[in-house]
Amino acid sequence: MSKVDNSGLPRAADQPRIVVIGGGTGLSVMLRGLKEKPLDITAIVTVADDGGSSGILRDEMKIPPPGDIRNVLIALADAEPMLSQMLQHRFNSGNGLAGHSLGNLILAAMKEITGDFVSGVKELSRVLAVRGRVLPATHQSIILKAEMEDGTIVEGESKIPKSGLKIRRVFIEPNDVKPLDEAIEAIRNADAILMGPGSLYTSIMPNLLVPQLAQEIAASEALRIFVCNVMTQPGETDHFSVDDHLQAIRDHVGKDLFDYVIVNNSSIPPQVQQQYAEEGAEVVRLDMEAVAARGCRVIADRLVLFRTYLRHDADKLSRHIYDLVQRRVSEKG
């Protein structure tokens, strides 16, 4: 038996419900694997981006930045490869067009057609036969700011990693934005809540800083899972271990959030490590005892693929996540 969810798309009533929170490339890669599993997926996506095409449309059209939303829609879409390629196409010439992706422009158009950004995302989800729901973390754009260890304030998601300074904390303005009712409802009804992989301070943290979202996650009885990045990110998580990622989240929300952490434990070839070292990145160290001291269980496996860049193995990662969720649903009865 199936029913219609709040995006207007059908879903099976007996599918485990999973909420995935974040932004950036890592989230999209993981969702491509998860959509092949019998899961009811809700993706809650950051709206802090201020660079490139998203930043321009955000300023000129007064809409939440569409870039991360676009990537998640395409990752979850049941669409022809050419359609996905078309939506990702970025114009490299044209007065006013250069730098924009077609998908971003379509989302801006859908906002004008439907009257608001969230309705536009839902309508485009139907057009693309998206397997799940895609929700911005809030109706309005937010500005991400960082206080650095020397007290300097850096404004803008795209500028924070480039400051050359160590981050003490990040915060958002305005700080009283409201989360979507659908996002709160999805968290309350979830069997599992998943965060990462992605930029810790600029893709994951902005969602947790939206008032009520972190509180709802902390109060949830759902299985809470963190997928840790394989490599550190220059300007954000230099020299971070797995536990450093968890501590940074605790510092911002006031408590530990996760029941499980999924990490890569395969060795990275020296030539690949050297390639990343030239950009200032290194392998995220697994400090098992510190993670376990939080009451957090670790699932470690060979989870990376290397082509031009390291990426999570979406199929293997999604199998681990699905097994955890299935086990939790079975335990609940």
Results as ranks from 00 to 15, higher is better:
Lys255Glu: 11
Ala129Cys: 11
Val242Phe: 09
Glu112Pro: 10
Val4Trp: 12
Tyr260Phe: 12
Pro174Leu: 14
Arg126Tyr: 01
Ser93Thr: 12
Asp68Val: 05
Ser241Phe: 03
Pro161Gln: 13
Leu105Ala: 02
Asn71Tyr: 09
Arg126Pro: 01
Val121Lys: 13
Gly254Ser: 13
Ala292Lys: 14
His312Thr: 05
Gly295Gln: 08
Pro16Trp: 14
Gly156Ile: 13
Gln233Trp: 00
Asp181Gly: 07
Gly67Tyr: 04
Glu149Trp: 01
Tyr322Cys: 10
Ile184Thr: 11
Gln274Ala: 06
Gln247His: 07
Asp323Ala: 15
Leu9Glu: 13
Glu36Asn: 14
Ile249Leu: 00
Ser53Ala: 11
Gln85Pro: 02
Ile262Asn: 09
Lys111Cys: 15
Gly24Phe: 02
Arg58Cys: 09
Gln15Ala: 11
Phe91Asn: 00
Ser101Asn: 08
Lys37Glu: 13
Ala183Lys: 01
Tyr309Met: 08
Pro197Asn: 00
Pro211Trp: 09
Met288Cys: 04
Val72Tyr: 08
Leu87Met: 15
Arg319Gly: 07
Leu180Ile: 09
Gln212Ser: 11
Ser93Lys: 14
Ala300Arg: 01
Val242Gln: 03
Asp50Gln: 11
Asp116Gly: 06
Gly254Cys: 13
Glu173Met: 10
Thr308Ile: 10
Pro206Ile: 02
Val45Lys: 00
Ala300Gly: 10
Asp315Gly: 03
Gly254Met: 07
Asp313Gly: 06
Pro136Thr: 07
Val272Cys: 04
Lys316Leu: 13
Gly67Arg: 11
Val304Met: 15
Leu305Lys: 15
Ile268Glu: 10
Lys162Ala: 10
Leu83His: 03
Gly94Cys: 08
Asp181Pro: 00
Asp181Met: 00
Gly33Asp: 04
Ala108Trp: 14
Val325Phe: 12
Ser220Arg: 05
Asp251Tyr: 04
Phe171Arg: 07
Phe171Tyr: 13
Ile56Trp: 14
Lys35Ile: 10
Gly94His: 03
Arg319Thr: 14
Pro179Leu: 04
Ile321Cys: 06
Asn6Tyr: 05
Thr114Tyr: 08
Arg126Gln: 12
Asp14Trp: 03
Asp49Gly: 10
Val261Gly: 01
Thr237Leu: 00
Asp5Val: 11
Arg328Lys: 15
Pro270Gln: 13
Ser158Trp: 08
Ala48Ser: 12
Gln212Phe: 03
Asn207Thr: 07
Glu149Val: 09
Asn207Pro: 01
Gln233Asp: 06
Gln85Phe: 06
Lys62Trp: 13
Asp176Gln: 06
Met86His: 11
Gly52Glu: 04
Val242Arg: 01
Ser53Phe: 09
Gly115Ile: 04
Arg328Ser: 11
Gly235Asn: 01
Lys316Phe: 04
Gln326Lys: 09
Lys35Leu: 08
Lys35Ala: 10
Asp150Phe: 07
Ala108Asn: 12
Ser199Gly: 04
Val47Cys: 11
Pro64Gly: 14
Tyr322Ile: 06
Val130Met: 07
Ile106Pro: 02
